[in-house]
């Protein structure tokens, strides 16, 4: 698809000329550095509990049984599904509402706009811990404790997404929407048909960030949820911490498994991201 648009290929092509074997070496070395802890994690997941505290990386023998063991201790799939659905909804809501808000902040001119925006941004600057008790009390009033909704809603309307997409939309040339407006398009049409498609890399980026962040969120779900069957994965992993110490080998097996769906999702979305970056390479 990219080859049908030579002008946009240039974007990266000019830099690729310089790549040589040394570059690959550096990249491979860096990659190994990034993977190393994961290799350790994966290897530990095959150890026995007593081996898991050895400095030795390799297990004495590969205990595949650790993996079925995980499923015996926790309903792993259930937890993973909970996490996926919760993070999925947060992502969908976040991306959609943030895109709307960002459009308003970046492309519409209304009195008081920038002040409202800065107020928005300022709310991110307060540590979430202090709002924990007020938010929790709000949840109690709204009868949302121990519900999926109570995990989705408070996470879905942050200022981060709005900020990110606003920055993205500021980079899209004004001429585009002006042209559309002259053609008699409504604000909604401009948003839906002009800005949104051009913000694609921003949207995908935000989707990735939001999903990853919420798939891993721990503290809020920990405090909010009471029913085991509704636990998201990070909270569910607490089951490996017992009075008698931590079942490190099983924990590592569970974490190894939890990484897999994320990698798959990332690889899928990343394709979009790359395409998006190549096509959305427009800046004013």
């Amino acid at each position: 698809m990219a080859e049908t648009h030579p002008p946009f290929r240039k974007n990266t092509a000019h830099q690729a000329q310089r790549s040589g074997p040394w570059l690959s070496l550096v990249l491979v070395a860096l990659s190994l550095l990034m993977i190393a802890p994961f290799v350790w994690m994966a290897l530990t997941s095959f150890k026995t509990l007593s081996e898991s505290s050895d400095p030795e990386w390799m297990p004495g023998a590969f205990r595949w049984g650790n993996y079925p063991e995980v499923f015996k201790i926790i309903p792993f799939l259930r937890f993973a599904a909970n996490s996926l659905v919760i993070a999925g909804w947060v992502t969908v809501l976040q991306v959609f509402t943030s895109a709307l808000a960002a459009f308003s902040f970046a492309r519409l001119e209304w009195p008081g706009r920038d002040r409202v925006f800065f107020l928005y941004l300022a709310t991110m600057m307060l540590p979430g811990l202090v709002t924990l008790i007020p938010t929790f009390q709000l949840m109690v009033r709204m009868d949302m404790v121990d519900t999926y909704l109570g995990l989705v809603l408070p996470a879905a309307f942050g200022a981060f997404g709005t900020f990110l997409l606003r920055q993205f939309m500021l980079g899209i040339p004004r001429a585009l929407d002006e042209a559309a407006e002259i053609d008699g398009a409504s604000k909604w049409q401009i948003f839906w048909d002009v800005i949104l498609p051009l913000s694609r890399p921003g949207l995908v980026t935000l989707a990735i960030f939001t999903f990853m962040g919420n798939f891993q969120s721990f503290f809020w779900p920990l405090v909010m949820m009471k029913t085991v069957d509704k636990f998201p994965l990070p909270v569910g992993l607490m089951f490996f911490d017992t009075e008698r110490g931590q079942a490190t080998h099983l924990l590592m097996a569970a974490v190894t498994m939890s990484v897999v769906p994320l990698i798959i999702i990332f690889v899928l979305l990343q394709k979009q991201l790359i395409r998006g970056i190549q096509l959305g390479g427009v800046k004013g």
């Binding site: 001429a175 949104l196 498609p197 051009l198 096509l279 959305g280 390479g281 427009v282």
Partner: peptide, 21 residues
Amino acid sequence: MASVRLNPAPAEPNELPTLKR
């Protein structure tokens, strides 16, 4: 400055629905 290289999106008719779909 980069206004020369405008709007790839409209030139890509099936690009639009993919995102929304």
